[in-house]
Protein backbone atom coordinates (compact mmCIF):
# COMPACT_ATOMS: atom_id res chain seq x y z
CA UNK A 1 0.00 0.00 0.00
CA UNK A 2 2.64 2.38 0.96
CA UNK A 3 4.43 1.55 -2.22
CA UNK A 4 1.61 3.45 -3.82
CA UNK A 5 2.04 6.23 -1.30
CA UNK A 6 5.66 6.63 -2.31
CA UNK A 7 4.77 6.59 -5.98
CA UNK A 8 2.06 9.12 -5.56
CA UNK A 9 4.29 11.41 -3.49
CA UNK A 10 6.90 11.25 -6.20
CA UNK A 11 4.30 12.08 -8.82
CA UNK A 12 3.11 15.03 -6.81
CA UNK A 13 6.64 16.19 -6.24
CA UNK A 14 7.26 16.09 -9.95
CA UNK A 15 4.11 18.06 -10.61
CA UNK A 16 4.92 20.61 -7.95
CA UNK A 17 8.41 21.19 -9.28
CA UNK A 18 7.44 21.35 -12.94
CA UNK A 19 4.36 23.48 -12.45
CA UNK A 20 4.68 25.18 -9.09
CA UNK A 21 1.69 27.14 -7.87
CA UNK A 22 2.38 30.77 -7.19
CA UNK A 23 3.88 31.57 -3.84
CA UNK A 24 4.36 27.98 -2.75
CA UNK A 25 7.47 25.82 -2.61
CA UNK A 26 7.34 22.30 -1.30
CA UNK A 27 9.76 19.40 -1.36
CA UNK A 28 10.77 16.34 0.65
CA UNK A 29 13.37 17.08 3.30
CA UNK A 30 15.74 14.36 2.15
CA UNK A 31 15.91 11.79 -0.61
CA UNK A 32 15.60 8.85 1.70
CA UNK A 33 12.33 9.85 3.24
CA UNK A 34 9.61 11.12 1.00
CA UNK A 35 7.14 11.21 3.86
CA UNK A 36 8.47 14.40 5.46
CA UNK A 37 8.14 17.53 3.41
CA UNK A 38 9.12 21.06 4.03
CA UNK A 39 7.31 23.91 2.38
CA UNK A 40 7.43 27.66 2.21
CA UNK A 41 4.22 29.60 1.89
CA UNK A 42 4.09 33.28 1.02
CA UNK A 43 1.34 35.27 2.63
CA UNK A 44 -1.38 36.19 0.15
CA UNK A 45 -1.29 39.73 -1.24
CA UNK A 46 -3.61 42.37 0.14
CA UNK A 47 -3.86 40.67 3.48
CA UNK A 48 -2.10 41.35 6.75
CA UNK A 49 0.18 38.38 6.01
CA UNK A 50 1.29 39.76 2.63
CA UNK A 51 4.97 39.33 1.77
CA UNK A 52 5.65 37.02 4.68
CA UNK A 53 7.35 33.70 4.01
CA UNK A 54 6.25 31.01 6.41
CA UNK A 55 7.98 27.66 6.66
CA UNK A 56 5.92 24.59 7.44
CA UNK A 57 6.41 20.87 7.67
CA UNK A 58 4.10 18.24 6.24
CA UNK A 59 4.15 14.70 7.55
CA UNK A 60 2.54 12.05 5.42
CA UNK A 61 1.08 8.83 6.81
CA UNK A 62 2.06 5.43 5.47
CA UNK A 63 -1.27 5.05 3.75
CA UNK A 64 -1.27 8.40 2.02
CA UNK A 65 -3.39 9.38 0.06
CA UNK A 66 -6.03 7.40 1.92
CA UNK A 67 -5.32 9.29 5.12
CA UNK A 68 -4.59 12.99 5.23
CA UNK A 69 -1.12 14.36 6.00
CA UNK A 70 -0.41 16.55 8.99
CA UNK A 71 0.82 20.07 8.55
CA UNK A 72 2.55 22.24 11.04
CA UNK A 73 4.08 25.69 10.75
CA UNK A 74 7.59 25.77 12.09
CA UNK A 75 7.45 29.50 12.63
CA UNK A 76 5.35 31.44 15.05
CA UNK A 77 2.04 32.35 13.47
CA UNK A 78 -0.78 34.08 15.27
CA UNK A 79 -3.87 33.00 13.42
CA UNK A 80 -7.34 31.73 14.43
CA UNK A 81 -6.92 28.42 12.62
CA UNK A 82 -3.39 27.60 13.72
CA UNK A 83 -2.72 26.05 17.09
CA UNK A 84 -0.10 27.54 19.38
CA UNK A 85 2.33 24.78 18.42
CA UNK A 86 1.92 25.49 14.71
CA UNK A 87 -0.48 22.71 13.75
CA UNK A 88 -2.86 23.76 11.02
CA UNK A 89 -6.54 23.16 11.61
CA UNK A 90 -8.43 23.12 8.32
CA UNK A 91 -11.10 20.73 7.25
CA UNK A 92 -9.21 19.46 4.23
CA UNK A 93 -6.66 17.93 6.61
CA UNK A 94 -9.27 16.01 8.58
CA UNK A 95 -10.37 12.60 7.48
CA UNK A 96 -14.14 12.32 7.20
CA UNK A 97 -14.33 9.91 10.09
CA UNK A 98 -13.20 12.25 12.82
CA UNK A 99 -14.60 15.65 13.48
CA UNK A 100 -12.57 17.59 16.01
CA UNK A 101 -14.65 20.75 15.79
CA UNK A 102 -18.07 19.49 14.78
CA UNK A 103 -18.47 22.26 12.25
CA UNK A 104 -17.24 20.63 9.11
CA UNK A 105 -19.36 18.96 6.51
CA UNK A 106 -17.81 15.80 5.17
CA UNK A 107 -17.66 17.23 1.67
CA UNK A 108 -14.84 19.54 2.74
CA UNK A 109 -12.83 16.80 4.32
CA UNK A 110 -9.89 14.82 3.14
CA UNK A 111 -10.30 12.45 0.26
CA UNK A 112 -7.67 10.86 -1.98
CA UNK A 113 -8.69 13.34 -4.65
CA UNK A 114 -7.01 16.10 -2.69
CA UNK A 115 -3.32 16.76 -3.10
CA UNK A 116 -0.44 18.60 -1.54
CA UNK A 117 -1.01 21.48 -3.88
CA UNK A 118 -4.66 21.75 -2.88
CA UNK A 119 -3.75 21.62 0.79
CA UNK A 120 -1.22 24.39 0.41
CA UNK A 121 -3.61 26.50 -1.63
CA UNK A 122 -6.28 26.12 0.99
CA UNK A 123 -3.76 27.08 3.64
CA UNK A 124 -3.02 30.23 1.66
CA UNK A 125 -6.70 31.03 1.47
CA UNK A 126 -6.98 30.28 5.16
CA UNK A 127 -4.30 32.88 5.80
CA UNK A 128 -6.30 35.34 3.72
CA UNK A 129 -9.65 34.55 5.29
CA UNK A 130 -9.47 33.10 8.77
CA UNK A 131 -12.44 31.03 9.82
CA UNK A 132 -13.32 32.24 13.30
CA UNK A 133 -16.25 29.82 13.55
CA UNK A 134 -14.09 26.92 14.68
CA UNK A 135 -10.94 28.49 16.02
CA UNK A 136 -7.86 26.56 16.95
CA UNK A 137 -6.45 29.63 18.64
CA UNK A 138 -9.29 31.24 20.53
CA UNK A 139 -7.33 34.37 21.43
CA UNK A 140 -6.48 34.98 17.81
CA UNK A 141 -10.08 34.42 16.77
CA UNK A 142 -11.31 36.82 19.40
CA UNK A 143 -8.81 39.45 18.37
CA UNK A 144 -9.62 38.93 14.71
CA UNK A 145 -13.27 39.60 15.46
CA UNK A 146 -13.00 42.41 17.92
CA UNK A 147 -9.67 44.16 17.49
CA UNK A 148 -8.68 43.83 13.89
CA UNK A 149 -6.06 46.58 14.13
CA UNK A 150 -4.18 44.78 16.87
CA UNK A 151 -4.42 41.50 14.97
CA UNK A 152 -2.95 43.12 11.91
CA UNK A 153 -0.14 44.60 13.95
CA UNK A 154 0.76 41.17 15.29
CA UNK A 155 0.53 39.72 11.81
CA UNK A 156 2.78 42.44 10.50
CA UNK A 157 5.34 41.61 13.14
CA UNK A 158 5.12 37.95 12.21
CA UNK A 159 5.80 38.88 8.61
CA UNK A 160 8.75 41.01 9.64
CA UNK A 161 10.10 38.20 11.76
CA UNK A 162 9.80 35.76 8.88
CA UNK A 163 11.79 38.15 6.70
CA UNK A 164 14.31 38.91 9.47
CA UNK A 165 13.32 42.56 9.44
CA UNK A 166 13.33 44.76 12.55
CA UNK A 167 10.01 44.66 14.36
CA UNK A 168 7.62 47.56 14.03
CA UNK A 169 7.30 49.96 16.93
CA UNK A 170 4.44 49.02 19.19
Amino acid sequence: MAGYALKRLMTEYKELTTRPPEGIIAAPIDDENFFEWECLITGPDDTCFANGVFPARITFPQDYPLSPPKMRFTCELFHPNIYQDGRVCISILHSPGDDPTGYESSSERWSPVQSIEKILLSVVSMLAEPNDESPANVNAAKMWREDRAQFEKIADNTVRKSLALPLAEN
Binding site: M1, A2, G3, A5, L6, M10, D31, E32, N33, F34, F35, Q62
Partner: peptide, 9 residues
Protein backbone atom coordinates in the same frame (compact mmCIF):
# COMPACT_ATOMS: atom_id res chain seq x y z
CA UNK B 1 11.57 -2.68 7.91
CA UNK B 2 8.53 -0.41 7.88
CA UNK B 3 10.83 2.25 6.54
CA UNK B 4 11.45 0.10 3.48
CA UNK B 5 8.04 1.07 2.19
CA UNK B 6 8.80 4.73 2.36
CA UNK B 7 12.24 4.75 0.97
CA UNK B 8 12.63 4.98 -2.77
CA UNK B 9 16.09 3.43 -2.84
Amino acid sequence: VDMMERSPV
